[in-house]
C-alpha cells in the first residue's frame, strides 16, 4: 500500500512545563486506511511517548476519542487522514472544556450533569419480581430508542456555544438522556427530572443553535430533544395552572 506523509499540528499542554497550550508538528507517513487516531498512536509509540489523549475502542463505540480536528468536533477514530491530505491537520482538545493535559479534557463536570438528570428508570412503585418484566411494545421502544444511542463522546458540548459561554448549562447529551427516560413507557420520573431539565441552566438556556445535532456521530439529535422537553414542560406548566388538582 502506498504511503504518503501528512503533518499533524497537535496541541500540547503540559501543566508543569507551560502556562498555556502550544502546538507541536509531527510529519507522519500514513497508509490509506489510517484515521487520525492511528496517527496519534503512531506518534505515541514511535515518535513522542509523552503525548496524551484518550481512546479505547477504535470503532466509534466508546466515545472517548473526541477531539477538534481542523476546528470540528470529531471522533478521531472515525476521520481518515486521506480526507485531509495534502493539507496539515490541526488536532486540538475538545472545545469548551478545561484541559488536563495535551488532548485530554476534564470531563468531571459532564459526568456530574449526566448523573443529575437521573438517567435510569424511576418507578412510582416497583412490581414484585414474580409479576415478570415490564413489557414494552415496538412503538413504545421506537419513541425513545434513537435518543438512547448516545456514547457520551461530548462532541455536542464542544459544538455548543451556549455551553462555551456558560459551563453550568446542563447541555445537549445530558438533556437528551433525561428526555430518553421521560419517553420510556416504563418510567414515572418526568416530574423528578423537571427540577434539573426545567431549570434555567437546563432547557431554557438553549437558544437552539442546533450544532449539537449536526456533529453528533450517533444521530441522537439532542437539539430536538431539548426543544421537545421545552414544549412538554410548557404544556405541563399550563396544565398545572388550569388543572392544579391534576398535578403529579
Amino acid at each position: 500500500m502506498s504511503e504518503r506523509t501528512i503533518t499533524l499540528d497537535v496541541t500540547r499542554y503540559r501543566p508543569h512545563q507551560e502556562a498555556v497550550p502550544t502546538v507541536q508538528s509531527y510529519a507522519i507517513p500514513f497508509p490509506d486506511d489510517w484515521v487520525v487516531l492511528d496517527a496519534l498512536n503512531h506518534i505515541k509509540d514511535q515518535v513522542d511517548g509523552s503525548l496524551s489523549y484518550r481512546w479505547s475502542c477504535r470503532m466509534g463505540v466508546c466515545g472517548s476519542c473526541g477531539m477538534m480536528v481542523n476546528g470540528e468536533p470529531k471522533l478521531s477514530c472515525a476521520v481518515f487522514l486521506r480526507d485531509y491530505f495534502p493539507r496539515a491537520i490541526r488536532v486540538e482538545p475538545l472545545s469548551n472544556f478545561p484541559v488536563i493535559r495535551d488532548l485530554v479534557i476534564d470531563m468531571s463536570g459532564f459526568l456530574d450533569k449526566l448523573k443529575s438528570v437521573k438517567p435510569w428508570i424511576i418507578r412510582e412503585q416497583e412490581k414484585p419480581l414474580s409479576e415478570g418484566e415490564y413489557l414494552q411494545s415496538p412503538r413504545e421502544l421506537d419513541a425513545y430508542q434513537h435518543f438512547s444511542q448516545c456514547i457520551n463522546c461530548m462532541l455536542c458540548y464542544a459544538a455548543c456555544p451556549v455551553f462555551g459561554l456558560d459551563s453550568g448549562f446542563v447541555g445537549p447529551a445530558a438533556i437528551a438522556l433525561g428526555y430518553r427516560y421521560n419517553l420510556d413507557s416504563r418510567d414515572h420520573g418526568t416530574a423528578e427530572r423537571r427540577e434539573v431539565l426545567g431549570d434555567h441552566e437546563g432547557i431554557w438556556q438553549c437558544t437552539f443553535v442546533g450544532e449539537c445535532s449536526v456533529v453528533c456521530p450517533k444521530h441522537v439529535d439532542p437539539a430536538a430533544a431539548i426543544q421537545r422537553v421545552k414544549v412538554d414542560t410548557a404544556k405541563d406548566w399550563i396544565l398545572s395552572l388550569v388543572m392544579p388538582w391534576g398535578q403529579r
Binding site: P21, N96, P98, D106, M107, S108, L111
Partner: peptide, 17 residues
Amino acid sequence: MMATRPDPAGLYHPAMP
C-alpha cells in the same frame, strides 16, 4: 464520583472569544 484529574489548579481553561 471522584474525578481522576491530577491537579485541578493545573487545568487550562480556554476562553471563548
